[in-house]
Design a protein around this nucleic acid. Structure first.
Lengths: 173, 173
DNA sequence: TAGCGTCACTTGCTCAAGCAAGTCAGACGA
DNA sequence: TCGTCTGACTTGCTTGAGCAAGTGACGCTA
């Protein structure tokens, strides 16, 4: 840490801001995961995979591309796809145009699974985050998160917020 | 999900807000963990334990109390304390006043560890979150997180934001 | 004071994920 | 055309955490 950092401990004001954010950081993902797990037997991560496939052309993506969308290591993805395959929601194929790639395709069964899981998840996000905030707060939150993401700086592959096809793993376009 | 939830998919506006927040939710904890791991060989969770002990009277807490502060299961805590004990940062004792309880005490070595780890962690939080935001945004963020936490509703043991001794696991009073 | 229920941990089993070491297909230079 | 390289997965080993089944200390009641 070779940087000017100020006093070693937070001021009361800093602490208020940070601890309130930290609390959300701790609980919100847990709540979302719990809902998906309870109602659809899916982790948020697995849901994200199924969702990304569901909006992809031919419901198919190369694993490496999917890993990018999911912000996941190939290891984690490979094992997750194995689990989803076991449940018949996804099928693996070798890319016919280049045998080095592996394609993941959403099955019909998997499509139904997304279809069933999405409304509950969307409703939960609305209930916990979107509805409680005023329109002004929506804008404020976007600005704030943008500042934080910018501070995290380049060198982190933030998903471009203006991408033409924002295959946002948490998104539901 | 027996509630009015609106259309099944997010509107563009909703998506903007949610995906920006989701990105922070995904990256910020990872960045904080990475810094602590790299500079201090600690997970954020372990850091939180050491920190909580460091501000406790006699640098000692009952495991069950510590679990409450850390928002952790007793299982997770028990194993974490075992790891910290192995590194000589914490010592376990049976509570002399009641043999059913187990006390965790920060050792001298553990105290130094906190002392060394804190500045870097505090600086990282400042760099990523506190400094980039204006004073107005600080207030906005507190309001927003409060709304979200409220929406998550009672039934969740939010740490009281006004507790006299806010042993905030992420905090650094 | 013996028996019992309760509560605070602890631990065995299982699974998810990281790292590092394979494996295999295509690209490329000799 | 052959050997080498690279890149895309895959998998063995290890670790962290959850669940459920212990274990041991108290308190309480008969």
């Amino acid at each position: 840490m070779g940087e000017i950092s100020g006093p070693a401990a937070f001021s009361g004001d800093e602490l208020q801001t940070w601890s309130s954010l930290a609390t959300v950081l701790e609980w919100l993902p847990a709540l979302l995961d719990a809902q998906l797990q309870r109602d659809a037997g899916l982790t948020h991560f697995e849901y994200g995979l199924l969702y990304a496939l569901s909006v992809a052309p031919d419901r198919t993506l190369r694993l490496s591309v999917l890993a990018g969308y999911a912000n996941s290591s190939l290891t984690k993805l490979s094992r997750a796809v194995t689990r989803l395959e076991r449940r018949q929601w996804v099928r693996r194929t070798t890319d016919p145009t280049d045998g080095r790639y592996t394609l993941a395709t959403l099955t019909e069964l998997g499509w139904h699974q997304v279809d069933e899981a999405m409304p509950g998840h969307v409703a939960t996000v609305r209930r916990l985050v979107l509805t409680p905030l005023t329109a002004a707060q929506h804008q404020q939150l976007r600005d704030i998160t943008q500042s934080i993401l910018t501070a995290a700086g380049p060198g982190h592959p933030w998903r471009s917020p203006t991408a033409d096809t924002p295959v946002d793993m948490d998104g539901h376009t």
